[in-house]
């Protein structure tokens, strides 16, 4: 019998190896373990053996059964897998592009905006927004800009008609509406809203100047501005935050320098240059990037903060300029053409 079982297992192995569908499998299975199957026949014969031989024979039969069951199971599993694979067809060409593929992208200026907001966020500054239509008070008066300052001239700043009245741009009095020339307006609105320092905001956004558009000028552009007001804020803190911003943005090798300058809303005022020798596009020169300074006491007075108690700093940059320096884009107008060959380069 031992020989016979060996034979049956060997034959099962052989016939199952040739099976490739469930009907075939069922037929082969029946021929082995079905009512008339070869293995079933051997099992039936067990009872005919002398009693003393039965335990040994039973053991042999059980061993053969385990082998056959395992064979049947693995064959069935293989067939099922093959059937599933057949449903999805032959291997796909993974190198073909997806039919309607498109690379989504954020605009480079917006990416720089987000990056700077994230850098400032780590230093404890929250994003503040303000209206783009502003008034003379928020854009100039509150920022210590005298009535006769040239920036206020109709030659340089867009105004709305006298008759315009905005439902959601608050005015101080009956001053004229204009398109904001800088994001510093948000400083004023935030300080008035906050009533009492500390204030730490970063305000990115669009600004407008009555400029003819050329490779480096645009009538509408983006700025980002930061303001910190607290007790004991000093020039050293201003330098520290700008060092931090440029090291975060451009790498640890970057340096920042201050050149004394004049802005009506800060005193002292500086222009900010950065140096980043490792950036190929920037080279070995100091590059002018923005303005900064300590908030002028008159600005505090105009928002009702006590300039004896509070001090603060503010700084701002043009986002287009940063984008151009970092990416090598050499004409500001490309930012507004929105050619997807341009846009997708920054995806």
């Amino acid at each position: 019998m031992e020989e016979e079982l060996k034979q049956i297992v060997a034959s099962a192995e052989q016939s199952l190896a040739g099976v490739s569908s469930m009907p075939q499998f069922e037929a082969v299975k029946a021929s082995i373990v079905g009512p008339n199957g070869s293995f079933t026949g051997v099992r039936k014969n067990l009872g005919k053996l002398p009693k003393e031989e039965r335990p040994a024979a039973g053991k042999l039969i059980n061993e053969a059964k385990d082998k056959i069951d395992a064979l049947l199971l693995s064959t069935m599993e293989a067939i099922r897998r093959a059937e599933l694979a057949a449903r999805v067809g032959p291997a796909v060409d993974v190198t073909l592009p997806a039919p309607a593929a498109a690379t989504g992208s954020r605009h480079l200026i917006m990416q720089i905006r987000e990056e700077l907001c994230a850098i400032m966020h780590r230093a404890g500054f929250a994003v503040a927004e303000g209206p783009e239509v502003e008034t003379e008070f928020y854009c100039f008066d509150a920022l210590n800009t005298p009535p006769e300052h040239p920036a206020r001239a109709e030659q340089d700043t867009y105004y709305l008609p006298e008759s315009a009245v905005f439902g959601n741009v608050s005015r101080k009095g009956a001053e004229r509406y204009l398109l904001r020339t800088h994001t510093s307006t948000v400083q004023i609105r935030e300080m008035l809203k906050t009533k009492e320092p500390p204030v730490r905001i970063v305000s990115p956004g669009r600004c407008y100047r009555r400029d003819t558009t050329d490779a480096t000028h645009s009538a509408s552009f983006h700025q980002i501005e930061c303001l910190a007001v607290d007790e004991g804020v000093s020039v050293k803190d201003l330098k520290a935050i700008l060092d931090y911003v440029f090291k975060s943005l451009l790498g640890k090798e970057s340096k920042v320098r201050f050149r004394p300058h004049f802005f009506p809303y800060t005193e002292p005022s500086f222009e900010v240059d950065f140096y980043s020798g490792h950036l190929p596009k920037v080279g070995k020169e100091w590059v002018e990037i923005g303005g900064c300074g300590m908030v002028d006491p008159n600005v505090f007075t105009s928002v009702g903060y006590d300039p004896e108690k509070w001090s603060g700093y503010a700084f701002g940059f043009g986002l287009e300029r940063i984008a151009m320096i970092l990416s090598g884009v050499d004409d500001i107008r490309y930012f507004y053409q929105n050619d997807v060959r341009f846009l997708s380069q920054f995806a």
């Binding site: 230093a123 929250a126 503040a128 500390p198 050293k236 803190d237 330098k239 520290a240 201050f258």
Partner: peptide, 21 residues
């Protein structure tokens, strides 16, 4: 201005959240 010493950023907890816009 080159003599302004370098210093760490004195950062406190955020004063508020980002503007909803």
């Amino acid at each position: 201005t080159d003599k302004i010493p370098s210093a760490p950023v004195l950062s406190n907890a955020l004063v508020g959240g980002d503007d909803p816009m």
